[in-house]
Amino acid sequence: TVKFKYKGEEKQVDISKIKKVWRVGKMISFTYDEGGGKTGRGAVSEKDAPKELLQ
């Protein structure tokens, strides 16, 4: 599970739902399947990112 803040809201998403991951400076950005055909997005700092996300 990845915990992150998006627009001031605390969120979390299961690693299995993450589609795409990329690095922006010291942040790790990602998109994930929100269900219902929607794609969500989020970002975590490199130090807070789970190891599975960095692979």
Rank of each mutant, 00 (worst) to 15 (best):
residue 54 L to M: 07
residue 55 Q to P: 06
residue 19 K to F: 14
residue 10 E to P: 08
residue 10 E to K: 08
residue 25 G to N: 07
residue 22 W to T: 06
residue 37 G to M: 04
residue 11 K to C: 05
residue 30 F to R: 00
residue 45 S to A: 14
residue 28 I to Q: 00
residue 23 R to G: 03
residue 12 Q to T: 15
residue 40 G to N: 06
residue 30 F to C: 00
residue 36 G to A: 11
residue 30 F to G: 00
residue 11 K to Q: 07
residue 38 K to M: 10
residue 34 E to A: 15
residue 55 Q to H: 12
residue 19 K to G: 06
residue 28 I to R: 00
residue 51 K to Y: 14
residue 50 P to Q: 03
residue 32 Y to C: 01
residue 50 P to W: 03
residue 52 E to D: 09
residue 3 K to A: 08
residue 54 L to R: 08
residue 1 T to F: 15
residue 8 G to P: 00
residue 2 V to K: 01
residue 22 W to F: 06
residue 53 L to F: 06
residue 37 G to Y: 05
residue 55 Q to Y: 10
residue 10 E to F: 15
residue 21 V to F: 07
residue 36 G to E: 14
residue 11 K to D: 02
residue 22 W to K: 05
residue 4 F to H: 02
residue 49 A to C: 12
residue 7 K to V: 03
residue 27 M to I: 13
residue 50 P to G: 04
residue 35 G to K: 05
residue 55 Q to F: 12
residue 19 K to P: 01
residue 51 K to V: 14
residue 46 E to Q: 10
residue 30 F to Q: 00
residue 27 M to V: 12
residue 37 G to W: 03
residue 11 K to E: 02
residue 20 K to N: 10
residue 17 K to E: 06
residue 49 A to D: 02
residue 1 T to C: 08
residue 49 A to N: 01
residue 18 I to R: 00
residue 28 I to Y: 06
residue 25 G to A: 04
residue 21 V to R: 03
residue 23 R to N: 04
residue 18 I to F: 03
residue 35 G to E: 08
residue 5 K to Q: 12
residue 17 K to A: 14
residue 46 E to L: 14
residue 39 T to W: 13
residue 13 V to S: 02
residue 51 K to Q: 14
residue 32 Y to N: 00
residue 31 T to I: 15
residue 18 I to Y: 00
residue 46 E to C: 05
residue 14 D to R: 07
residue 7 K to W: 08
residue 52 E to K: 08
residue 34 E to P: 03
residue 41 R to I: 11
residue 49 A to Y: 04
residue 19 K to Q: 12
residue 23 R to F: 07
residue 7 K to F: 10
residue 42 G to E: 01
residue 47 K to V: 14
residue 48 D to A: 10
residue 41 R to E: 10
residue 32 Y to E: 00
residue 26 K to F: 10
residue 30 F to A: 00
residue 9 E to D: 08
residue 6 Y to E: 08
residue 26 K to I: 12
residue 38 K to R: 13
residue 8 G to H: 05
residue 53 L to M: 07
residue 53 L to Y: 02
residue 14 D to T: 07
residue 35 G to Q: 05
residue 36 G to V: 07
residue 35 G to W: 03
residue 55 Q to E: 14
residue 48 D to V: 09
residue 21 V to L: 06
residue 44 V to W: 02
residue 43 A to F: 15
residue 5 K to E: 08
residue 32 Y to K: 00
residue 24 V to L: 06
residue 25 G to W: 04
residue 22 W to D: 02
residue 14 D to I: 07
residue 45 S to P: 14
residue 26 K to P: 09
residue 38 K to W: 06
residue 1 T to S: 11
residue 33 D to Y: 07
residue 30 F to P: 00
residue 20 K to P: 01
residue 20 K to I: 07
residue 29 S to T: 12
residue 47 K to E: 14
residue 43 A to G: 07
residue 13 V to R: 01
residue 37 G to V: 03
residue 28 I to D: 00
residue 46 E to P: 07
residue 36 G to K: 08
residue 10 E to H: 12
residue 9 E to R: 09
residue 11 K to N: 04
residue 14 D to A: 13
residue 5 K to Y: 15
residue 15 I to P: 03
residue 31 T to R: 03
residue 52 E to C: 04
residue 21 V to A: 10
residue 53 L to H: 01
residue 30 F to T: 00
residue 22 W to V: 05
residue 45 S to E: 13
residue 54 L to F: 09
residue 52 E to F: 14
residue 37 G to P: 03
residue 38 K to Q: 10
residue 15 I to E: 02
residue 29 S to M: 13
residue 15 I to N: 02
residue 37 G to Q: 04
residue 34 E to Q: 12
residue 29 S to F: 15
residue 50 P to K: 02
residue 13 V to F: 04
residue 7 K to E: 08
residue 22 W to M: 05
residue 30 F to W: 01
residue 29 S to N: 15
residue 53 L to W: 08
residue 54 L to P: 02
residue 19 K to L: 15
residue 34 E to D: 14
residue 10 E to I: 10
residue 6 Y to F: 12
residue 44 V to S: 02
residue 15 I to G: 02
residue 40 G to E: 06
residue 30 F to D: 00
residue 1 T to L: 12
residue 55 Q to N: 13
residue 54 L to T: 08
residue 45 S to F: 13
residue 30 F to I: 02
residue 8 G to L: 05
residue 45 S to V: 09
residue 34 E to V: 11
residue 16 S to G: 10
residue 46 E to V: 14
residue 33 D to F: 04
residue 1 T to D: 05
residue 53 L to R: 01
residue 50 P to E: 02
residue 25 G to K: 05
residue 45 S to Q: 13
residue 20 K to M: 12
residue 34 E to I: 15
residue 11 K to S: 03
residue 5 K to V: 13
residue 5 K to W: 15
residue 51 K to G: 09
residue 42 G to S: 03
residue 13 V to K: 01
residue 20 K to E: 11
residue 15 I to F: 08
residue 31 T to Q: 08
residue 46 E to T: 11
residue 19 K to T: 14
residue 48 D to Q: 10
residue 54 L to N: 03
residue 7 K to Y: 09
residue 43 A to W: 15
residue 39 T to G: 04
residue 12 Q to N: 09
residue 44 V to D: 00
residue 52 E to P: 07
residue 55 Q to M: 15
residue 43 A to H: 14
residue 52 E to M: 09
residue 41 R to A: 07
residue 40 G to Q: 08
residue 53 L to E: 01
residue 49 A to F: 11
residue 33 D to N: 05
residue 31 T to G: 02
residue 32 Y to R: 00
residue 39 T to P: 05
residue 3 K to E: 05
residue 27 M to C: 10
residue 25 G to M: 03
residue 52 E to W: 15
residue 23 R to I: 10
residue 23 R to D: 01
residue 51 K to F: 14
residue 33 D to V: 07
residue 5 K to C: 10
residue 7 K to R: 13
residue 11 K to H: 09
residue 44 V to A: 02
residue 25 G to T: 02
residue 17 K to Y: 10
residue 35 G to A: 07
residue 15 I to V: 09
residue 47 K to G: 11
residue 43 A to S: 14
residue 2 V to P: 01
residue 6 Y to G: 03
residue 7 K to Q: 09
residue 55 Q to I: 15
residue 49 A to R: 01
residue 53 L to D: 01
residue 33 D to H: 06
residue 22 W to I: 06
residue 33 D to I: 08
residue 10 E to L: 15
residue 24 V to H: 15
residue 52 E to N: 06
residue 7 K to M: 11
residue 40 G to I: 05
residue 12 Q to C: 10
residue 5 K to L: 13
residue 31 T to A: 08
residue 46 E to M: 12
residue 42 G to R: 01
residue 1 T to A: 11
residue 43 A to E: 14
residue 13 V to M: 04
residue 18 I to N: 00
residue 47 K to N: 12
residue 40 G to Y: 06
residue 6 Y to I: 10
residue 26 K to W: 07
residue 31 T to M: 12
residue 2 V to F: 14
residue 48 D to M: 09
residue 3 K to M: 09
residue 36 G to D: 15
residue 53 L to V: 04
residue 41 R to H: 14
residue 30 F to S: 00
residue 35 G to V: 08
residue 53 L to I: 07
residue 17 K to W: 07
residue 43 A to C: 13
residue 21 V to Y: 05
residue 9 E to S: 09
residue 28 I to N: 00
residue 23 R to Q: 08
residue 45 S to Y: 14
residue 27 M to G: 04
residue 4 F to V: 03
residue 18 I to T: 02
residue 51 K to H: 12
residue 24 V to S: 14
residue 9 E to M: 12
residue 4 F to A: 02
residue 16 S to R: 11
residue 2 V to L: 14
residue 27 M to S: 07
residue 40 G to H: 06
residue 45 S to N: 15
residue 47 K to S: 13
residue 45 S to L: 15
residue 8 G to I: 02
residue 42 G to K: 01
residue 17 K to C: 09
residue 27 M to T: 09
residue 24 V to Y: 11
residue 42 G to H: 02
residue 39 T to V: 15
residue 53 L to C: 03
residue 31 T to S: 07
residue 6 Y to H: 10
residue 41 R to V: 11
residue 41 R to N: 08
residue 34 E to H: 05
residue 53 L to G: 01
residue 12 Q to R: 11
residue 53 L to A: 01
residue 35 G to L: 06
residue 18 I to P: 00
residue 28 I to F: 04
residue 5 K to D: 06
residue 30 F to M: 01
residue 21 V to D: 01
residue 43 A to R: 15
residue 3 K to N: 11
residue 1 T to E: 07
residue 42 G to L: 02
residue 22 W to A: 03
residue 26 K to D: 12
residue 9 E to G: 08
residue 36 G to F: 13
residue 47 K to Y: 11
residue 45 S to K: 12
residue 32 Y to L: 01
residue 8 G to S: 05
residue 17 K to N: 10
residue 12 Q to A: 10
residue 14 D to Q: 13
residue 17 K to G: 04
residue 14 D to M: 13
residue 13 V to A: 04
residue 25 G to V: 02
residue 53 L to N: 01
residue 51 K to D: 12
residue 14 D to Y: 09
residue 1 T to H: 11
residue 29 S to W: 15
residue 50 P to R: 03
residue 50 P to S: 06
residue 24 V to I: 14
residue 1 T to G: 05
residue 16 S to T: 11
residue 35 G to Y: 05
